[in-house]
Simulated assay, not measured.
Amino acid sequence: MEALLTSTAVVALAEIGDKTMLLAMLLAAKYRQPVPIAFGILLATLANHFLAALIGAQAAAWFDGDLFRYLVAAGFVVMGLWTLIPDKFEEDDKPRSRGGAFLTTLVAFFLVEIGDKTQVATIALGARFSDAVMVTIGTTIGMMLANAPVLWLGDRLANRLPLAKIRIAAAALFVIVGLWLAAETAGLLG
């Protein structure tokens, strides 16, 4: 249950203001079909994050030991610092498709999520919890919690959210998880 809740919270916060959220806004404005876009986000996230969580869990199995746990902890701290840097959606990132709202969203989200903060966080969460299924469910819930409101509320929501404060909260959560893991590995907790 810890893997599910932590993964949900980390990704929901990290996703706010992320380029995939900006992509969701763009797709919502372009297609005005929130349901197929939501299903595209859901399936793309499940596929992308399951692979990421699996990579993290497998890495943890291969490299089990204190050094690897410290590296994962440092990864969370680095993710926290990276979260403080606002994302922007580049002109080249705009989806180009003839497949309609669902297919465009599915492909665009899967591709844009590669190397994104939330995917890297999913790898680290997979390594931390060694449970690809629960991490994937949690990170997918987090993605949907952050992106679904954008599909229906769009710019009105984006203009009212305190993105800088949310980004700071997300960064703090990453750093806290990293420091907690480092303290746990060092035997300072427990």
Rank of each mutant, 00 (worst) to 15 (best):
T139Y: 04
G115S: 12
I141A: 13
I141S: 02
F102M: 08
E90P: 01
F129T: 14
K117C: 02
M134G: 01
V120P: 05
L111G: 01
P86I: 00
T122M: 10
I123Q: 11
R98G: 12
G99T: 05
M134A: 12
V107M: 04
K94L: 11
E113H: 06
A127W: 09
D87I: 09
T118L: 04
R98A: 06
T118N: 08
R128M: 15
A132F: 08
G100V: 07
K94S: 07
T118R: 06
Q119W: 15
I123D: 13
G138P: 07
L103D: 03
A127D: 04
R128Q: 15
A127C: 07
A127G: 10
T122E: 08
G100R: 10
A124R: 07
R128L: 15
D93R: 01
V107Y: 01
I141Q: 06
D93I: 01
F102I: 02
T122K: 09
D92F: 11
R98L: 08
F102Q: 05
R128G: 08
G126D: 07
F129G: 13
D93T: 01
F109K: 10
A108G: 01
G138A: 09
I123P: 11
M134N: 08
R96A: 02
A121G: 13
T140M: 05
E113W: 09
V133S: 14
M134R: 12
A101G: 00
K94M: 10
A124L: 15
P95N: 09
P86A: 00
R128T: 15
G126V: 04
G99S: 11
F109C: 13
Q119C: 08
L106N: 04
F102P: 04
A121Q: 05
G138R: 10
M134S: 11
D131W: 06
E90G: 02
R96D: 04
L103K: 13
E113Y: 09
V135H: 08
G100N: 09
D92N: 12
T105Y: 03
G126R: 07
A132K: 07
I141D: 02
A108E: 02
V107S: 10
D131N: 15
I123W: 14
F89A: 00
G99Q: 09
G115I: 11
P86V: 00
K88C: 03
T105M: 02
E91T: 01
F89E: 00
A101C: 00
L111W: 05
I114S: 02
R98I: 04
F129L: 14
P95Y: 06
L125Y: 15
I137L: 15
P95V: 05
R98T: 11
L111Y: 06
R96F: 02
V107W: 01
Q119R: 13
F110G: 07
I123Y: 14
T122H: 06
T139N: 04
